[in-house]
């Protein structure tokens, strides 16, 4: 019942915020349940979300899109599997895990399909406690290596980035970060400014044998145990 109800909330939210058509097939027991929980209301026979319903729906959307990012960028799953898993994911993630995933991904703002991810508390606080895997290119330091995962920005920006060949899956290495960012891709070096560098999200490869990294790992493990178990 819960999953079905959450899916309905999601649809209602999408119809209000992103102009998606609502399906409208709502059975009586579901309606009862949602009304009981105070998640929907009827005004002039038209169904809409209550404040609490709105909050819940927004969270589900956020979880769904975060899950998409995680499955796509970090685990590299195919599109068909992502959709299926993300739909299950969104119903079972706890608050703490949600924050951990979001931080790990570098507080992404759009899903792989380009839809916005509603920000959570952790995004607003910019939490960094969990060791992150995905960084903005602008946050990396010389010597760091990684793989481009996605680009956040309007159509113009992403077209530009595309035509330069800065595509997901491309490996890069940071050469300098001052006065401009200089990266090595293949056998060529490129210079780019901070604005562009902040729009490119990179899955950072781990630098082995660095003590600082190890310490962070320890912290991450502790935190993870707390969150995932």
């Amino acid at each position: 019942m819960k999953e079905e109800a959450e899916n309905l909330l999601k649809e209602l939210w999408l119809s209000v915020h992103e102009g998606l058509k609502e399906r409208g097939d709502i059975n009586d027991s579901l309606r009862e349940y949602l009304l009981d929980e105070g998640l929907i209301k009827f005004v002039n026979d038209k169904i809409s979300l209550t404040e609490e319903g709105e909050r819940r729906a927004r969270k589900i959307i956020r979880l769904h899109r975060l899950a998409e990012r995680l499955l796509n960028d970090v685990l590299g799953m195919g599109e068909s599997k992502i959709e299926e898993s993300a739909c299950k994911f969104e119903h079972i993630i706890s608050d703490e895990v949600e924050e951990a995933i979001c931080t790990l991904l570098g507080h992404p703002t759009v899903c792989p399909h380009g839809f916005p991810i509603p920000p959570g508390n952790c995004c607003i606080k910019g939490e960094r406690e969990v060791e992150r895997l995905i960084f903005r290119l602008s946050e990396l330091s010389p010597g760091d290596e990684g793989v481009i995962k996605y680009v956040v920005g309007g159509k113009d920006l992403s077209n530009k980035v595309v035509s330069f060949g800065l595509l997901p899956g491309e490996k890069l290495k940071i050469i300098r970060v001052f006065p401009t960012f200089i990266i090595q891709m293949g056998n060529t070096q490129f210079a780019l400014d901070r604005d562009l560098a902040s729009a490119i999200f990179v899955l950072k490869h781990e630098n082995n044998g660095e003590k600082k990294e190890e310490e962070k790992h320890g912290f991450f493990r502790k935190r993870r145990r707390k969150g995932w178990e």
Binding site: V110, G114, K155, N159, S163, G165, L167, P168, G169
Partner: peptide
Amino acid sequence: TLKSYEIFRQIQE
């Protein structure tokens, strides 16, 4: 949606 990115990624692939 913002598909250009995905299209060009697939061309690159």
